[in-house]
């Protein structure tokens, strides 16, 4: 059953569809939150996100756009917790976001990065960490990442490139090879 069908059924008032939606997206949401925040806050923030999702679900006009909507809510809860970090990061990245850069698409390299990602994620700046989590761990397309982060697709690509460079440097410092 597609997400859209589950959302439509949940919007009609089927509790079972809502529970299935939660079961399906609980871990991806938690993973995103956990990679952005510490373990102590991850469960509470996830719960808060699902509360907002349940409250807002009847008003979701495009059930087919559930995933971007869900991660937008999740990001809002995370940015509320990391307000200072985001403010600082937005300031410093203003000159670094050059729209229109391409993303290296080497699948082998992506696999290495995906596996090593988690170990060094917490050391990365918040904007780069966020984009890596959404793109690599959540497998969201660039357009969806752009929607969730409320930036143009070109900015997502430049952030991804910068994040990959930082990731590579972190891995090299730790003695990994990419």
């Amino acid at each position: 059953m597609t997400d859209e069908l589950l959302v439509v059924r949940a919007q009609l008032g089927e509790r079972g569809a809502l529970a299935e939606l939660l079961a399906r997206w609980r871990m991806p949401v938690w993973t995103y939150v956990r990679r952005m925040l510490d373990a102590d806050r991850a469960d509470d923030v996830s719960q808060e996100i699902w509360l907002a999702v349940v409250r807002g679900l009847p008003r979701l006009r495009e059930p087919g756009r559930f995933v971007p909507w869900l991660f937008t809510i999740a990001r809002r809860s995370v940015t509320d917790r990391l307000r200072d970090e985001y403010a600082q990061a937005e300031e410093t990245s203003a000159f670094g976001d050059i729209a229109g850069e391409g993303i290296a698409e080497d699948p082998a390299e992506v696999m290495v990065e995906r596996a090593a990602l988690v170990s060094v994620l917490s050391a990365l700046p918040v904007l780069e960490r966020e984009i890596l989590v959404l793109f690599y761990l959540e497998d969201l397309p660039v357009e969806v990442c752009a929607h969730v982060c409320q930036v143009p697709a070109g900015t997502v690509k430049s952030r991804l490139n910068r994040a990959r460079r930082l990731l590579r440097e972190s891995l090299e410092e730790k003695g990994h090879t990419s």
């Binding site: 509790r15 809502l18 529970a19 939660l22 079961a23 609980r26 871990m27 938690w30 956990r34 373990a39 991850a42 469960d43 996830s46 719960q47 699902w50 509360l51 349940v54 409250r55 988690v118």
Partner: peptide, 21 residues
Amino acid sequence: MNNEPRRSAQDMIEHLAPVLS
């Protein structure tokens, strides 16, 4: 590093139950 949520899906649904009551 904690890689599993502490709350199960059932726990989460129970926490949301009052909102849906």
